[in-house]
Design a protein around this nucleic acid. Structure first.
Length: 399
DNA sequence: TCTGGGGTCCTAGGACCC
DNA sequence: TCTGGGGTCCTAGGACCC
């Protein structure tokens, strides 16, 4: 989906079209500000001058999406708000409306599934689609089907997307970026040398900042330059698995299937504080946040019908270093109080001298609640989980 | 004025078991 | 005079993705 979070806002506020705008950051409900001052107006008539600007932004957020007009100023995804404010102070800034984003995400995905049922979820704004079994899926190299999908999504949601069609997921993902926004790109196997090899290695899904930096140190910048090295050289420099993988992808080879269903591995909640907090000095505040995170994870598990037995915490210090601790129980739970108790024990095992900027709670080793019921029996398992938590809670938790 | 939140997968050492 | 070889699970950290 093209500039998804920003495009979602433009559906409601079309008067902002073409203006530099960024989405992300704050917890502030910007809508509340607009509605307070312009409660009498329909959303599409709220004057542009009423919207908050990046130069007035205060807080620690990062940008999730920038409109193309904002990108002109060098503003982009994952950039800190304060840095973006320097580059483009006049940009309008809105928070992510998660409910609306989820609604439109479900809508565009269901629209695709009606046309081509083999779809792999890749987050809120992205999917892989298998064209193979779709009638007419091969016409014009897939362009006909791609056009139909674009048209149907636009009709259902008012949003545009970009589609790459290729022999495999690796190349399709690269191709989807060739014609943004609202574009289609067809890449054949024979286009490897002309269209894939010139790309920066960093464009490949799986080559991140670290691998890219190492490639650069070895004098490699593009996919083609990886392909020019032999497999043994790559294995010697990047290890058996990564080296072999790099060799394969550089030659455009990828046999991963489109996976239509998967079970979650973990669920978590985390929050970055408005200001750094100290375990002793801000004990009460931290304790309340901690309890709240545990309750939320418990609610998430229950709502989605899962239980887990590995409870973990994550914290980030003021210097941005991260520490995690976890504990695996002998039985499964989705109970906020149990999670809180075990997570509290984890917290005691981690250094708390430095100020903290983030706290998170995670539950892993998940089972479907009804499977766990069949396997263990719920009331007894519940008592067991509680007993586990109690036995590790030798003294009152730190918070 | 630094750097969100929610995930997955991999690695590596140690415990433990047969 | 020498100290197997698998396998699984747990834990901590880190790379990467959307």
């Amino acid at each position: 989906m093209d500039a998804f979070f920003a495009s979602v806002e433009l559906l409601r506020y079309p008067q902002l079209k073409g203006l530099p705008m960024v989405i992300g950051g704050g917890r502030r409900k910007v809508d509340d500000i607009l509605h307070r001052d312009h409660a009498d107006l329909p959303l599409h008539e709220v004057p542009v001058a009423a919207f908050p600007l990046l130069k007035d932004y205060v807080g620690r957020g990062v940008i999730t999406t920038a409109t193309y007009a904002a990108r002109q100023f060098g503003v982009g995804s994952a950039m800190g708000m304060m840095k973006a404010a320097k580059l483009c102070p006049q940009a309008i800034v809105l928070p992510v409306d998660f409910d609306e984003v989820r609604r439109l995400s479900r809508l565009f995905k269901s629209t695709i599934r009606e046309i081509a049922p083999v779809v792999e979820d890749r987050g809120v704004d992205e999917v892989y689609i298998d064209f193979t079994g779709v009638p007419g899926g091969q016409r014009e190299g897939g362009r006909v089907l791609a056009r139909l999908i674009q048209k149907s999504i636009l009709q259902a949601t008012g949003l545009t997307c970009s589609i790459g069609v290729a022999p495999n997921k690796l190349i399709a993902k690269l191709a989807s970026e060739f014609n943004k926004p609202n574009g289609i790109s067809i890449v054949h196997e024979s286009d490897l040398e002309s269209k894939i090899w010139p790309l920066a290695a960093r464009k490949v899904n799986g080559i991140g900042p670290k691998a890219d930096a190492k490639l650069e140190r070895l004098g490699i910048r593009t996919v083609g330059e990886i392909a020019a090295k032999d497999r043994d050289w790559l294995v010697a420099n990047f290890g058996k698995a990564t080296g072999a993988w790099m060799h394969e992808i550089s030659w455009g080879r990828d046999d991963r299937p489109v996976v239509t269903e998967s079970e979650p591995v973990s669920m978590s909640r985390e929050t970055t504080f408005d200001r750094d907090l100290h375990a002793v000095r801000d004990r009460a505040e931290l304790g309340a946040i901690f309890t709240h995170l545990c309750e939320k994870v418990g609610e998430d598990l229950q709502r989605k019908g899962y239980v887990g037995k590995t409870i973990g915490i994550k914290l980030r210090y003021d210097d941005f270093r991260t520490a995690t601790r976890d504990h695996t129980m002998s039985s499964f739970t989705a109970d906020g109080r149990t999670i809180r108790q075990v997570a509290g024990q984890c917290l005691k095992r981690v250094p708390l001298e430095r100020p903290l900027r983030l706290l998170g709670v995670r539950v892993g080793t998940l089972r479907r609640a009804d499977d766990a019921l069949a396997a263990g029996g719920t009331p007894a398992a519940g008592r067991q989980a509680r007993a586990d938590a109690d036995s590790t809670a030798l003294t009152a938790s730190l918070f």
